[in-house]
Design a binder for these strands. Sequence first.
DNA 1: TTGGAAAGTCAACAAGACTGACATAAAATG
DNA 2: CATTTTATGTCAGTCTTGTTGACTTTCCAA
Lengths: 170, 170
Amino acid sequence: MQDRAFPGKGGGGENLLFLTDDQLRKGIEAMFFAYRGFTADPDRILENYAYGRAHHRAIHFINRSPGTTVNNLLDILGVTKQSLNRVLRTLINDGLVESRVGTRDKRERHLYLTEKGRALEHELSDAQRARMRAAFRAAGPEAVQGFRKVLEEIMDPRMREFLNSMTDGG
Amino acid sequence: MQDRAFPGKGGGGENLLFLTDDQLRKGIEAMFFAYRGFTADPDRILENYAYGRAHHRAIHFINRSPGTTVNNLLDILGVTKQSLNRVLRTLINDGLVESRVGTRDKRERHLYLTEKGRALEHELSDAQRARMRAAFRAAGPEAVQGFRKVLEEIMDPRMREFLNSMTDGG
DNA sequence: TTGGAAAGTCAACAAGACTGACATAAAATG
DNA sequence: CATTTTATGTCAGTCTTGTTGACTTTCCAA
């Protein structure tokens, strides 16, 4: 596991400088630092409401797919149903989320944001989008394309599919 | 907060399609899903040792900067000293990290990985690098450049400085 | 109709973050 | 030399968010 740079020589003849262990390490650390920045603004807002990141995630994906079921949400969030349930319970009790029993299948609960829920969602996503927009603008469209491309390679293929499947509420 | 696309018209005359709310939302979700993929492999390994992500992070940055002090580490990790201390204590007790009293300033503790610590670091970073390498290779060098560029814009400027300052141990 | 699977809920526990208070030692400062 | 500041460590307690286990309700298929 030493240096993996073969600048302009050997086998394929390609310059693989971007695959050296040092480059990989920088990519890894960049992910760590960037994720912290990415969550910083919403985290700050959430403190005012005694909610956490878990609440933010639930709100985000309910807003994205109104009427989604608990099971759908579990799949996307990748947590246990008990964990999600605790979060949903508080959001429902606080009147940010509405849970409607399914008509076809009465075991299912369909989830919707209330007006109050939408308000918080907006506050959170505004802050997160502002940072993202600034970063995208500073980096430029080509960088953004590369950013997306690499992230899609890193994530689980199931999530990649999900990400690209929905244009709106599905 | 509606659509922000102005394809080929108006003011600057640039195509800002990559700054639409939909594009931003996809970027946000990509970050979320990718970060989960990013931590999945190390998390799996750590289960075998009864350690968590916090231990991984400490090990990573001690390995990166051998001899770093507790205060340095606190700065990079962005947690409280109580939180870090809990982690370091177990790593030192388990013989993965060595803590040496500073020679110049005896208040400082300089941290080093032991042989055992290096072994675990290697196992963890091998797994994480493998995924990163595959993603980088699949996406290509230009995408990687864009990926890095956007991440650096998202993170706190202090971290960006740190990321680019160290070539080795400083 | 009965038994199993699926969806959701409640309870209890653990990891890892936090705050606050306090202790020790060493360095820096007047 | 006395005082203050810095670096580190520790104890206690809380909070969020993850976990497992046990349970109810509902659906479906044999």
